[in-house]
Structures are given as structure tokens and as C-alpha cells.
Nucleic acid binder design. Structure first.
Lengths: 152, 152
DNA sequence: AATGAAATGGTTGCGGT
DNA sequence: ACCGCAACCATTTCATT
């Protein structure tokens, strides 16, 4: 990946719908050259895809929470992971080192909704013996993408 | 937002670069009608923008960690928030209720990089008296978008 | 709020460097 | 790996319902 790819990627992170000809005139290249490079970046798996970014507040999902979960035995994990895959409110599920086993990021409508997810969906699962919930009061920064540097 | 908007949004979350005419033929509408609806969704702020999704592993950012931070006095917060805004590795910064003040999601190259961020960047700041780092071993689920339901 | 048709503008395949 | 050109396809505008 050279500095031109870096510029193309940065532009596409900012605006995933910008046209090749727009990029071409910004970067002083021809549109076919841009199209070639973007196709290569997609084939290399550097660009995984494109997505519309939605506003969760506007759509009524104003509550964010992180939930740490401890699971007592290995054989209970598959069921837990299936539940996590099923729950649309669970945006992220990470396997964590340290005290807790899993860390979930949950986006939901409010406290009632959060209560349902914790009490009815997660704590009912066999093997889930501890949860710890951190409610988010406000979000200062939230970007989806990684720290790009020209040397990549 | 009606069920047609819902279908348009879902398609654009899956593929942010799909063409209006492609959507139009999937949804049995004309391209100008799709363009109208998308423009309205953008004006309403439901669609905030579009972005290319990058693969952090492929780009060498294979380590994810969550860092809880406690800050002792109000007047130290502005400096902390400025540092958070500046650090590209900090993908998210949430103001949390409960024991810790802030929760950061950090994406970096490895343990050395994480060490630098914690020891040199964050703990050097005045007022930062406690940090707790949770290293992520693997990520089971990671979506950027919110649980869409037709009734929105 | 949606449509068809025409004009505009972007993409893509190809030959050449 | 890039360019220019031309053919093709998508978008946009507008008159109409």
C-alpha cells in the first residue's frame, strides 16, 4: 500500500459513495486508475465493504451500555455465543483476557430495554453467573475505522 | 419512516455503494423515487454518511483493548478529552456512570504500542490517577449499526 | 410521492505507452 | 501501472399523474 492508496482509502472512509472521477480529479489521476486501485484494495481485503452510517439517537436507540459477562464452564459458551449472534442490540462481543470472560457493547432504547436484555436474555442462559453493566452517559468520540498512517 | 425506507436503509447498511437503479429493481420502484427517499433520509439525519469498512487485522492493527480511566478533578477533563481526540488509536471514548469515569476502546499494533498509549500518552496526563486495561483475545461480533426494526 | 423519458455525467473495457 | 477514448450504464431533471 503506497501513499496514493492511503489517500484513496482516507477519502472512502470519509465518503464511501464518492465517485471515482471525483477522487481522480482530487488526486490528479484518471478514473480508470482509481478504479483499478480500489479493486485491488478490495481484493486484498483491506477494504472489507461499504456501509451507510446511521444515527442511533434519531432512530430511538439512545442508550449505550457495556456488559461484562462471566461464564462458568466451556460447554455453555456455544449457547451464549448463539444468543449474542441473535440479539440485534448486541453490537459487539469480545472475548476478554482478565477477570471477565466476555465484554458486550449494547445499544438499546432505554433502561427497560436494557433490563430485558440483561435479566431475560443474558442471565437466563446456563453458565452465566456474573454480569457487570456500565451505562454510558455520553459518547465523546466514536469512529469505526483504524488509525491509518501513510507507511502502511 | 415506512417499510420501504427500512428496506432501503438495510440495503445501504449492507452495501453502501449499491446504485439507486439496483435498489430500484430490487424494490420494484423507479430510480428517481429511491433517490428522493435516500435524500430525505439524509436530510432527516437518519443516514449520517457513508464509509468504507477497513480490515484492521490486514492493516496491522491486530490488538484491541478497553481502558477504563479515572480522573480526579473536573478541571483536568478538557486536557484529557483533547488528548483522546488527538490519539488516532482511540476509536471510542465514552463517559461512563459508575466506578470509572471514561471508557476507551483502543485499536493498536501490539503490546508495545498499547504500552506507549497507556504509559506515555494517558497516564502522564494530570488528573489521571487510575487506569484499568482489558485486552481483547478475539472478537466474536462487531457491527456498526443499530438494531433496525420495521416499526421505526 | 411516484413515474417515464431525455439529458447529463460516471464507469469500464480496451488499445497503447 | 497508468492514460485516453468510446461504449455503456446510472443519475438527475422535468413534465405528468
Amino acid at each position: 500500500m503506497d501513499s496514493l492508496d492511503y489517500k484513496i482509502i482516507s477519502s472512502l472512509v470519509d465518503n464511501g459513495r464518492s465517485t471515482w472521477s471525483e477522487l481522480a480529479s482530487n488526486l490528479q489521476m484518471s478514473a480508470p486508475a482509481i478504479a483499478d486501485r480500489v479493486r485491488r484494495l478490495e481484493e486484498q481485503g483491506i477494504i472489507k465493504g461499504y456501509s451507510a452510517l446511521l444515527d442511533s439517537e434519531t432512530l430511538g436507540y439512545g442508550m449505550t451500555a457495556f456488559i461484562s459477562i462471566s461464564i462458568d464452564r466451556m460447554e455453555h459458551r456455544a449457547l451464549f455465543l448463539a444468543k449474542v449472534a441473535e440479539l440485534a442490540e448486541v453490537q459487539e462481543c469480545h472475548h476478554a483476557a482478565g477477570e471477565d470472560d466476555y465484554l458486550l457493547k449494547v445499544r438499546c432504547r432505554g433502561t427497560k430495554d436494557l433490563d430485558r436484555i440483561i435479566s431475560e436474555e443474558l442471565r437466563q442462559l446456563p453458565g452465566v453467573f456474573k454480569t457487570r453493566t456500565t451505562i454510558i452517559l455520553s459518547t465523546v468520540k466514536e469512529t469505526h475505522n483504524i488509525p491509518l498512517t501513510e507507511s502502511d
